[in-house]
Structure formats: structure tokens, C-alpha cells
Amino acid sequence: MDYEYIKQMDEGIDRNALLDELMMTFGKDVWNYAYCLTRRRELAEDIAQETFIKAYHAIYSFRGEMTMKAWLLTIARNTTRDYFRSAWFRRVQLVWEEYETSLFHPSAEKQWFVSLEQREVWNAVLSLPRKLRETLLLYVHHHLAHKEIAELLQVSEGTVKSRIFRARAAISRKLGKPAAFEGGKRP
């Protein structure tokens, strides 16, 4: 869907209908991105909601310089940053950095995984340093272009490509290592 028409229309647009369409089209992307940044479902939900509320109020300022998806993810990223900065969050949420050893606890999540390999891959990705993780997922999961990622993250395209390269190398190395549960041998 091309949202270029928005910049032509200013107030002649049904914001509520547009909001519905944006949520249906991009809700999952925004939520997933917020989850990957925060690693908390409840927080991802809050951030996703805040993102669409902000987008609703700022929709007439969308000028089509980036795709709608990238624009929404930029809002989500900034909203996440605000959460990380809030006083209570700093006090309480740090617990998740400390006490979660694996993003997906096998007992709770096992029914969602198609394969053990999928869980391994996601755990490997989500344990990457934040900058590498975020860049890789924007590229591979959200399918943004290098240029869009560069704008969203406020870095150069070269940095984006470098981070993707390093992230891929780190995960490929990690997955290439023997897995303990199989006694040191991979099939």
C-alpha cells in the first residue's frame, strides 16, 4: 500500500479509517519490534499502543520520505527510548536484564516453536548486543531496506551493512558450535 497520498490530503482524510488500516497492516511489525527492543510482552503492548496513538495524531505530518512501516517503527523506537528513560522503568525493569537467562523459557514456550532449531536461532539473535540485534531484525524480520534502517537508527548505510555482516557472522559462529544437550554433536 502506497501512503504517498496522505501528504496531498491534509485534513481531507478519514483518520479513523486510516488508523484501522495501519493497525491491521503494521500492528504485528510494530509489536514485534517493540518486543525485540524490550523483551517484555506487556511493555511491547504499551509501546505498540503508544506508537499508533502518536501516529494517529501526527498522521498529517507523514510526508512519504520513508515507507509507512519505517515511519511507524521510528515512532516505536523513540517511544521505547522514552520508556527506558523513565524513572520507574529504570528502577524496576532492569530485573529482566538480570534474571532472564533465555528469552524463551522452554516450559512456557515450547508449543510455539516449529523446531528446536527455531528456538536456538531466536535465542542466538536476541542475545546479540542490542545494536547488532536491532539492525539484523529490521533487515531480516521487518524487511526494511538499508537506507530506511539507516534513517531509523540515525546511522550511515555503511554502518547498517557492517552491523548486519557482524550479526550474521556472530550467529553463524554460535549456531555452528556443538550444542550441549546433544552431547557435543550436531546432526
Binding site: 511491547a44 505498540a48 524463551f104 514456550e109 508449543q111 510455539w112 527455531q118 524480520h141
Partner: peptide, 12 residues
């Protein structure tokens, strides 16, 4: 494997 975030019914 990164096409889908494997959270089942979690999410938006």
C-alpha cells in the same frame, strides 16, 4: 527462522 516471531498467540 526469523520470518516469524515465535510467540504463538502473543502480540498485536
Amino acid at each position: 527462522h526469523l520470518e516469524e516471531l515465535p510467540l504463538g498467540s502473543g502480540g498485536f
